[in-house]
Design a protein around this nucleic acid. Structure first.
Lengths: 214, 214
DNA sequence: TCCATTTGACACTGACTAGTGTACTTTGAC
DNA sequence: GTCAAAGTACACTAGTCAGTGTCAAATGGA
């Protein structure tokens, strides 16, 4: 199992149509249920073409997983910059940031449905590739969040020993909580409940990490 | 799709052999990959017998999911009682409690592998049954943890507004964190790292909820 | 226009799998 | 020992699906 095939093949727009369709179908049906024929139909492409671009169903899946991670990581980076660059009201800014981050799950439904599929397949994915995915996706999220928190701490608004731990804790108390309850968006949750969960999570985080305890 | 079949059929030990094997195979291979023949072989039972006890592969899966949840919920209840009944050193007791709770994942590997399978299948499981599972498993965990925290708060050791939120937050900061990183035990993590994560989580929880801030 | 690359249509193989039908054997209660 | 309930062995259907072979059609650059 190779990570990526070296030589590019075929027309890029075909390849993109395939990966897009694959992301959707893998996310909707899961790896095993997803049929290559269904992906071909969804992509408006011959099945034969898929096998000219990708050697394997497995390789297609892994390619899609890695490429999607990059995409979403970039989007999350933007959300961080929008909310955490300049802080006016820390609590409100963190709440807004977390709500936007949660909303990304619904903004990229195909990708996050795929995330569920990846987590389901974890035991069947070659460890190095799984680690590559974790590194490209979730881990990068933490690594990018940590510096923002550190900078906020330097301004005297937070008291932080380990910024990576703090980033992980903020994520757990907000995004992870919601994702777990909604199964990554598979089971909807009323927006007001999402807001409540995120608000409670941010408040708990601030009680734990705010420099000036009320 | 009925929740449980009313009339009991066949010898209970056969039925148990089937459900045990099903739990293991479903957990190992996931729902779609898991073959009924494989389950029959693992159970030391004729495939025909499986279909006399259960109408469907699907019904077998759902039965196993619900029964396993009950079992593990009971085990977790014991862990709570062991560590949270009388508190001597709150931080240490919470750490020990959380470590034991995390260890339950490796103590019931078949069940928690199945949990991953359930979460993977979430979108394909009839909502009422999925909710029944959530109620029997994860939710009950929270509901049972909350009273303990409330009692600890009444003794003046914690300051808690919403005990359910507090229970959820403690769980997120410890068990969920570890489970997410290990993919429910599929990818191992050194014990020292588990201890570090849990300790950091409990400390963050206590900074957020302890009555007397240091 | 020409030609090489790419793609499509489609039939096909081989393997696997859920579920059934049936005839035979085992088990355990009485 | 009898007998009915339960289980086994095994062949079989019918469907699905990953991946391939083949050849014709489309595409696009020179």
């Amino acid at each position: 199992m190779t990570l990526r095939q070296a030589e590019p093949y075929g027309r890029p727009e075909k390849r993109q149509a395939i990966t897009r369709a694959a992301r959707r179908v893998f996310g909707r049906d899961g790896y095993t249920r997803a049929g290559v024929d269904a992906i071909a139909a969804e992509a408006g492409v011959s099945k034969r073409t898929i096998y000219r671009h990708f050697t394997d169903k497995e390789q297609l899946f892994l390619t899609v997983a890695l490429e999607g991670a990059d995409e979403v990581t970039a989007a999350i980076a933007q959300i961080m910059d929008r909310h955490l660059h300049k802080i006016v009201d820390l609590e409100q800014d963190l709440i807004d940031f977390s709500l936007d981050r949660v909303a990304a799950v619904t903004a990229f439904p195909d990708h996050f449905a795929l995330v569920r599929a990846i987590e389901a397949e974890a035991a069947h994915i070659p460890p190095p590739i799984l680690q590559a995915w974790v590194a490209a996706g979730p881990q990068t999220g933490h690594l990018r969040l940590a510096p923002y928190l550190r900078r906020i701490a330097e301004r005297g608004l937070l008291r932080i020993d380990d910024a990576d731990d703090a980033a992980a804790h903020l994520t757990l108390l907000t995004v992870t909580d919601v994702n777990q309850q909604t199964f990554y968006g598979a089971i909807p949750l009323p927006q007001e409940e999402v807001t409540r969960l995120v608000t409670a999570g941010v408040r708990a985080f601030l009680r734990s990490y705010a420099a000036s305890a009320g």
